[in-house]
Computed example of a mutant assay.
Amino acid sequence: MSMTNASESRVHLMVSTDLDGTLLDHHTYDWQPAKPGMEILESLSAPIIINTSKTYEEVIKLQSELGIQEPFVVENGSALYLPKSKYPHAHSEFEDGGNYWQITFGETRDAIVAAIHKLREQQGYTFIGFSDMTLQQLIEYTNLPEENAQLALQRRFSEPLIWQDSDSNYEQFKTTLEARNFKVIKGGRFTHVLGETNKGIAILWFKAYYEKLHKVPVDIVALGDSQNDIDMLKIADYAVAVRSPVHDYPEFITQGSTLKTQGFGPNGWTEAIQQITRVSK
């Protein structure tokens, strides 16, 4: 990969990162191997924007563990949250969400669940969604600790599911929902049904807002390992496909610089940040 030395340019970096299998280890959810990369970004004052399929509650908890307080995107681009401590002034599109401003790009979970359950009843599709699962079932599927699993169930804008039917029925299911203005995407563990949005839409909105607010040009560094990261990777200036232990790299075309990491998950995350910023270990 050929790329400009981002750390020496006048363009500011903004990192948009997936979580499971990217910043977090796919199996253990450990983020410690990403710490050297995070320290590099902190030294450059480059914000780390979590851009995930996870919920608001999950990200709040994780940010506390990571020691960061930045805007973040949840449920595959369905909503963007900005901490009022850093962004105290309201924007015309902001909704008041307590300590955070909220911008909604997606659909309500109730509408999504109603639509997919009606399809299942009509067509006899076989799948199990989060709304069908008990807490114990979710723990078994994800290997999450009980507290984290409870947070994962607190969804507002999407419904993850495990598809247990044929590929042809999946395509039919997907086509029907897309005709009704929903989006169906595959992540590292689950298939996600959401409104007509994606991770790329949300981070581009924030990039434009950030550039206008701070009057600086911004390059997006996007890191992801799955198909649900493709929309984010496609619009990035530096697109990083992080190596996964369970599936192939996501395939995409972008006009920006691209990198496929050799390291898995958070090890690959640091590898990419070091290469992009040309900072040695």
Score class of each variant (00 low, 15 high):
N5T: 13
E8R: 15
H12W: 08
L13R: 11
V15A: 12
T17W: 00
D25V: 15
Y29R: 14
D30S: 14
A34S: 14
P36T: 10
E39S: 03
E39Y: 01
E39W: 03
L44P: 03
L44Q: 08
A46M: 03
N51V: 05
S53N: 09
E58P: 03
K61L: 11
I68F: 01
F72C: 06
A79R: 09
L80I: 08
L80W: 01
P83T: 02
P83V: 00
S85I: 01
P88K: 05
T104L: 04
R109S: 09
K118A: 15
R120H: 06
T126I: 03
F127A: 03
G129E: 10
T142K: 14
N143M: 07
L153R: 13
F157G: 09
P160D: 02
I162H: 13
W163R: 12
D167E: 14
K183L: 01
H192I: 10
L194M: 13
I203M: 14
F206A: 01
E211I: 02
V221A: 03
D225W: 10
D229T: 06
M232A: 05
D237F: 05
R243Y: 02
V246C: 04
G263L: 01
T270L: 00
Q275W: 11
Q275F: 08
R278Y: 10
V279L: 09
S280Q: 09
K281I: 14
